[in-house]
Amino acid sequence: MDIPRYWRLKDQRYRLQGTVCEDCGHYSFPPRLVCPNCKSKRQKPFAFSGKGTVFSFTTIYQTIERYQDQVPYLVALIDLEEGVRITAQLTDVDSDEVEIGMPVEMVVRKFYADGDNGPIFYGYKFRPIATGS
């Protein structure tokens, strides 16, 4: 990922910022200029709550070079509570702990570092909800 693209995507990557249609209420992630549901151009920025459930998941062993250091890792289809399905890495969880339907929440983690002297890229991953008490 080059620096201009990373810079442009930071709110998407850090805060799950997509869009909501001001005409029909349809949520989109990534953000859209035109509503895929009603074709309206009145799209407002919307930060998703980051809560969702695992629709399906798999373990990645073969990957592109920048993610080589992380294999094996988990990738899942996540159904966000607003009704949008996205693809993301799972973190803080072992493959035998993941179940379809498991509630997860978005966290910001390191995607990868560009060599020893390039930028470090951060963005959303999902993990089991930190229940807490």
Binding site: Y14, D69, Q70, T91, D92, V107, V108, R109, K110, F111, I120, Y122, K125
Partner: peptide, 13 residues
């Protein structure tokens, strides 16, 4: 820390 954690990600948490 996990392999994808650092002072920045942990500060966000």
């Amino acid at each position: 820390p996990g392999p994808d954690e650092d002072t920045i990600t942990m500060s966000i948490e």
